[in-house]
Design a protein around this nucleic acid. Structure first.
Lengths: 149, 149
DNA sequence: TTTGATGCAAATGGTTTGCATCGGG
DNA sequence: CCCGATGCAAACCATTTGCATCAAA
């Protein structure tokens, strides 16, 4: 969520685009629609060049602080990352539909959600900075599978 | 999310209310408003009787499958549990406001959310089984702290 | 040459599991 | 007796960190 600004600034200042960082960036640019875990990025990167897993983690952290990547938590015990949207002012304003049968992840953009957020803010005297929303269920491809519930 | 029914049934069949399980249940009954992590439950339990951490984990899993507890993921690297609501038909139909300053967790119940869910289901041909929603921001107590952003 | 970046391996933290033991039905 | 339940320790898995080395400004 919120990060220490001075720390972020120091990153901006001393930021160096090393071959490894460029590599990670490439991987994301070639997988714009995906939600990659550190392991995913590691595997995809290694198909091109050598890189250490620790470097992957450090790069992901850096890119997140730089606002290049958005960290997503699907509650499956691993963090995932995707290219951040252009509108940096608004946090990642899309949400996910996760199929519990095939694992497919779909994106949703819903304006109604903003309204919900406003109502919650007013009703609970809570100033919202970010949110986290996933829907779990069956995608259209797997819909029939839901019958064996 | 979805669990193998036969596995669940076998649990129902052979279910035994041991002293340890009773202990864990007590802890939850005495902490109805809290969102307890396994470690929390472990500490609270040990204040009353001896119990192993592995047993805590196994009991939490069991209680979740039995529908007694609801597992919540706040993305902080540990699962939390709370007593399930009575209306077992609808999954945990409340959401959380998490203060990123003091860590306080508030509950929200918002009818508008159901409408949002319906719209998403229709628009994306996705049959929703469960969802996960948290808002991060500043609670009224900490609201002033948000100025040092 | 100085400082950040990297890679490896070890450490960490939450959670799970193997296994011997315990105990209720 | 039998089988599920327990406790301990070891195993696991994602992530982080210490540290020596490397490389660019």
């Amino acid at each position: 969520m919120k990060k220490n600004i001075s720390k972020l600034e120091s990153h901006f200042k001393h930021y160096r685009l090393t071959p490894q960082r460029r590599l990670v960036l490439e991987v994301f640019l070639e997988n714009k629609e995906k939600h990659l875990s550190a392991e995913d990025v590691y595997q995809l990167s290694r198909q091109k060049e050598e890189i250490g897993l620790a470097t992957i983690y450090r790069t992901l952290d850096l890119f997140e602080e730089l606002g290049l990547l958005t960290k997503i938590n699907f509650g499956d015990g691993r963090s995932r990352y995707e290219l951040a949207q252009d509108n940096l002012n608004e946090p990642h304003n899309h949400h996910h539909l996760i199929c519990i049968n095939c694992g497919r992840i779909l994106e949703v953009e819903e304006e109604l959600f903003h309204k919900l957020e406003e109502i919650v803010e007013r009703k609970h005297e809570f100033s919202i900075v970010d949110h986290n929303l996933q829907f779990f269920g069956y995608c259209n491809r797997c819909h029939y599978a839901s019958k064996d519930l």
